[in-house]
Design a protein around this nucleic acid. Sequence first.
DNA 1: CAGTTTGTTCGGTACACTCCGAACAAGCGA
DNA 2: TCGCTTGTTCGGAGTGTACCGAACAAACTG
Lengths: 168, 168
Amino acid sequence: MSKGDRAVARERIIESMEQSAEVYGLSRSAGRIYGVLYFSENPLSIPDLVEETGYAKSTISNVTRTLTRIGLIHRRSSEGGGRRVHYSAEREIWFILQDVFQQYIKREIQTTLRTIQRAQAQLPDDSETEVERIEELRETYEDFQEIVTLASNFTAAELREALESYDR
Amino acid sequence: MSKGDRAVARERIIESMEQSAEVYGLSRSAGRIYGVLYFSENPLSIPDLVEETGYAKSTISNVTRTLTRIGLIHRRSSEGGGRRVHYSAEREIWFILQDVFQQYIKREIQTTLRTIQRAQAQLPDDSETEVERIEELRETYEDFQEIVTLASNFTAAELREALESYDR
DNA sequence: CAGTTTGTTCGGTACACTCCGAACAAGCGA
DNA sequence: TCGCTTGTTCGGAGTGTACCGAACAAACTG
């Protein structure tokens, strides 16, 4: 196997990560930066990433901040205590998804549920259509909340096991 | 309870749907149109929706097409066999989510997995870093695929039950 | 048949987002 | 102290997207 073959395989997968990034609401640059870090043996600095990706320094700076906030990559101050900062990829993708569940989906569900509950509190029982519809919504969202809460506390293996072993 | 109170509650929830729409990659108009249909007693035509939402006719036409394609709303030709078309909301939100899982997430996972497998097929076994990383990725995505496949065949109640009854 | 209503398509505008380069701040070594 | 390197911030160019209004096609109504 030549070095070139490995490079080609790596490049294909990084391109696939660029595409996935877009699907999940991130920019293509975010996908590439994550990909480069994913395959890198050592943590990389911003100048390293400029070299590897071809993006401008400012782009790397901005994207690494958002990726760090989301938890897709980790920021480490250099060992020497210097100013230089290094980034490494979080390779346990399940951790990332758990964070997405916890921070975004769960939050989104909770916000909606609270809106529904507040709206409901102002409306006495009544057979009007709006009231029925709102009650329907509340029940649905309570189910979702429970499912997401449970799922986000499992590991991927546990989740898989739970689903595989469940007998209807 | 005054008619006004119900209108206010309805409006709040529709605003919440507008926001959710953005989170899931749709436009705000899509959220509002879905919301209006969700609360409507009868299916509504495009002119009805123009009246209710204030959006231009062309916007309603375009958005209803995408919402129909996704399965969030249903399109019904008028009973009289006329040209007039009516839309109604799919209120079983779990069906919608199952579709999202099936069509988008599962597809996205499959595409990625195929890329990984093709890349792997070209690389003989070897202890190089890229090869290890690619193997790691493949295992992770195979787990995801299994989880999504199983989950998308459950009803919301079954899924909740499966997670609640699983004993580690 | 003409006039009206309904729905789609097309071009254009406004706005947000991505990325770049330049300017700047902050620490390093001489 | 003065360069040199690293990282952040800011303004702007290019691009895609949401929405609008106008023009058009198709069916009903008198």
